[in-house]
């Protein structure tokens, strides 16, 4: 091929590429424009009126909270503290139970851990299904069966967590060094001993780090599930918002409580995760 031909073909390819990128950008813009106009039509309030009164509600809450004074607000937050504990308990228990299930699932779904091979695709599909179920669906179903209590939320979050963490854990398992496993096999270690002494020390820091990340997500999920009837801070929020005018101070206290809880959990978890991954690297 002559150099000149190469030049023209490169140019042609570049033009084609530019055309594609331009097309993609145009597509995104068109989709956004159409999507927003469609969404605006389906919405009960329109974008522009919403924008003008966007700060009405937050300022109403803030004013009511302001009238209460700092100590009043702190008192309210103390009053709602048990609800927060309930939400945190839901998240903790669900993450612990889900994490244990995920460990079992991940060991049974990784090729290099010497499990019975036909089991692997089965556990993978099971995890896919567990992940696909939105927490809301299971929670609502169980609330109907068991009544309004934190248990439906806990089971729902644990179920989803098992699927989500199981996938991440099995990715961790796939990248381990197999030599310790071989070593234990050579001295006659059984499967449980191999998992305990050859696999766990390698994967534990990563597992814990994913576990903490999931805990952050689950605290938020538990708060939301409370709103649909699973108890905790979410149901208090639903009540105070349902009351409308006059309950703004309650809402403010609840927002603040949730906000602070999330900050503390996030910060602690990211500090611990940084230490864990740092420890794993040495």
């Amino acid at each position: 091929m002559a150099v000149i031909d190469l030049g023209t073909s490169v140019l042609a390819m570049r033009r084609q590429r530019q055309l594609y990128s331009f097309g993609a950008v145009l597509l995104v813009v068109a989709m956004m424009a159409w999507g927003y106009s469609e969404a605006n039509e389906l919405n009960s309030g329109s974008f522009l009126t919403g924008l003008t009164k966007f700060f009405d509600y937050p300022s109403e809450i803030v004013i009511e909270a302001w009238d209460l004074g700092l100590f009043g607000l702190l008192g309210l937050m103390w009053h709602f503290f048990p609800a927060l504990i309930e939400t945190l308990n839901i998240a903790f228990v669900a993450t612990i139970i889900g994490g244990f299930l995920a460990m079992g699932l991940s060991f049974a779904s990784t090729r290099n851990l010497d499990v019975w091979p036909p089991l692997i695709p089965v556990t993978r599909r099971v995890m896919d299904v567990m992940r696909a179920f939105p927490e809301l669906v299971i929670a609502l179903f169980l609330i109907f069966l068991l009544g309004s209590s934190p248990i439906p939320a806990m089971i729902a979050v644990a179920f989803h967590t098992a699927g989500a963490l199981g996938k991440l854990f099995s990715e961790v398992n796939e990248n381990i060094d197999r030599k310790p496993i071989e070593g234990l096999k050579a001295v006659g270690g059984n499967w449980i001993q191999r998992i305990r002494f050859a696999v766990m020390p390698q994967v534990a820091p990563n597992y814990l780090s994913y576990f903490l990340l999931r805990l952050e997500i689950n605290v938020r999920a538990s708060a939301i599930l409370g709103f649909v009837g699973a108890g905790g801070i979410g149901s208090e929020l639903r009540r105070s918002i349902g009351w409308g005018q006059g309950a703004g101070d309650d809402t403010a206290a609840l927002f603040l409580l949730l906000f602070l809880a999330i900050i503390i959990i996030d910060q602690t978890s990211s500090y611990l995760r940084a230490r864990l991954t740092g420890a794993a690297r040495h």
């Binding site: 969404a39 919405n43 309030g45 329109s46 919403g50 937050p58």
Partner: peptide, 12 residues
Amino acid sequence: IFIRAFGLGPLT
């Protein structure tokens, strides 16, 4: 907060 400002719907 958005539900309060924009009403019910996908935009919110």
